[in-house]
Design a protein around this nucleic acid. Sequence first.
DNA 1: GTAGGTGATGTTATCGGTCACATTCGTTCT
DNA 2: AGAACGAATGTGACCGATAACATCACCTAC
Lengths: 348, 348
Amino acid sequence: MEVTGHMPAQDAPRARSASIWDVARVAGVSQQTVSRVINGKARVSEATRARVLQVIAELGYRPNRLAQALAGGPVRSVTVLTSDTALYGAAATLRGMEEAARTAGFSVGISVLERTSGQADIALRLNRPGEAVMVIAFDDAGVRALRALPADVPVAAAVERRPDDGPDDPWQVWLDDRAAAAHATRYLLGLGHRTVHYVAIPSSTSALPQRTQGWQDALRAAGRPVPEPLPGGWSPRSGYLAVRSLLADRSVTAVLCGNDDLALGVMRAAREAGRDIPGDLSVVGFDDSPPSAYLNPSLTTVRLDFEGLGRACFGLLHRRLDPQNAPAVPAWSEPELIVRESSGPAPA
Amino acid sequence: MEVTGHMPAQDAPRARSASIWDVARVAGVSQQTVSRVINGKARVSEATRARVLQVIAELGYRPNRLAQALAGGPVRSVTVLTSDTALYGAAATLRGMEEAARTAGFSVGISVLERTSGQADIALRLNRPGEAVMVIAFDDAGVRALRALPADVPVAAAVERRPDDGPDDPWQVWLDDRAAAAHATRYLLGLGHRTVHYVAIPSSTSALPQRTQGWQDALRAAGRPVPEPLPGGWSPRSGYLAVRSLLADRSVTAVLCGNDDLALGVMRAAREAGRDIPGDLSVVGFDDSPPSAYLNPSLTTVRLDFEGLGRACFGLLHRRLDPQNAPAVPAWSEPELIVRESSGPAPA
DNA sequence: GTAGGTGATGTTATCGGTCACATTCGTTCT
DNA sequence: AGAACGAATGTGACCGATAACATCACCTAC
């Protein structure tokens, strides 16, 4: 066998782990053949394949992802762009994405967006131009990041709402927040509440958030008064502050919250205002975050399948990267109202 | 200029983004000089440097991380191995790690450990041999992963407890759970409780968890009876189940919990048993997870600086990778008991 | 005046793969 | 039997960088 310039020095002390060359040499084939075996693309005789596979096992060889990617191999890594992973929705979506990606043999990177992340900043988070990306765009920072991504990066996104301007982007997934909010609102009206107040999470776009719209839809459809939505943030504290003054008004008997954390704050405000839940006041949350079932009172809330959404988002990306071989995009569950102790009939 | 074999074809349509060669050509220098400017290592004349930097800006050139890594450049990426990011401690630690790493110019990967992840599995999660790793080893899966890592990978870990067997690993950080648990226990004893029961989180090792030990330390030091620790899991449900039967016994007046989720379950069990918190029963948690302050009653708990721990863990790794230039490892806060509504004087 | 040192820069090998194309060889077709 | 064909495999360029070594001009020192 000739020693070409590309061959690793035979005499140099080898601290590195096995490369494709080592496998090729031991198996007595060219490195290209090894590459073929690894990728299973081109045809290799059964005998050769078996021998190569055996050598691979013996040497404990594993392809270097970096080299594969650099050489223009198939994309096998994704970076997830997300803001505040402290929020249940984002964290659960991330879990779903990571699980699906890892299962499919992808390595996943994560990069948390700061509120101030500018457009220039976004490109810096990619390891190389063209790297695949998933964006969790439930809030403003995420949406901005999604928009700031160069056109040539393959991206899939989990979004709060489909953008109503411009053509539909087929590489997005979302939950039907609007219908879910409407459903929850109808549920409360069905309990005899005259109307329902709403504490909103911040919008991801300039438009009205889906949950807010759904709530309005239901009130309007039922011909009920539509109170001004109360602007909240993401935290219990912001929910607490949003309704603090409102709760003195005993005619307020039902509050729908944009997420469970807000509901937590609302329930505390209610306690301090001397309102009884659910006797005096019904509170309904959104998300079904883990503690909800164990709160006092336990929280009626809309369960959202964030993990499923995350898995689907990856499924979408996978199909975008490899339309031929990627499996079908898995379905995710519809939002579901989970009735617990915090909601009940309107006071007489 | 001669066209060597390594030069990109001049005539081929260029879809790719600028490489170091493009910069070199436009600036009229060799690519090596560009590399020097980028890395700032070797000396380059001021004039040349300025010209190259300008061309870089003009072309919007950014070095390809993959290529840098492959070519043996400095390590600029970390993979975090963690189990269940649904748990507050792991999630917060991850946040701290990611923030610190990103700030330092590292890209961070994440790989979630399944309960069943075997040793072979671990190696598969690395993009290349020798890749830097951080492990969140608060539980069994994390500790196993830490142990399964090949000796040659640069790793830093956030652990529940320093291993008592074998020499101290200088590349680990931890919180003083033991002292914190002892402190919380003493606090409860100081309120007049005869003894304190403890609902334990699963241990990360075969030894007694730090929190359990601290609790025992305090009881023993005070000469109080040491009840059998109640084995719990990580979830509210497991806390609920662990104490369900116990709470019928009115002599049980104080319960310390291994985390806030367990405390949530305990509080629900107390409610169902007709116990009043804090009148009848004091409950203290661990972690100070975000909802704690807004629970009903709000939860007395031990605040742990997981984010700081995560940042410190990265700091440690950074020093390990680059002892010369890495900044000092940032300090993190000591555990702190946050007294809220769920704890009070022992019933008369 | 010439050897030796130093700063600035170019050249070549290399990292660990993939891709496009060339080559080999047993078969089948005419 | 000769050509054409396709399966199996090898060869060399290339991805985008870094590292080691070579070069070159200029200056200082003996």
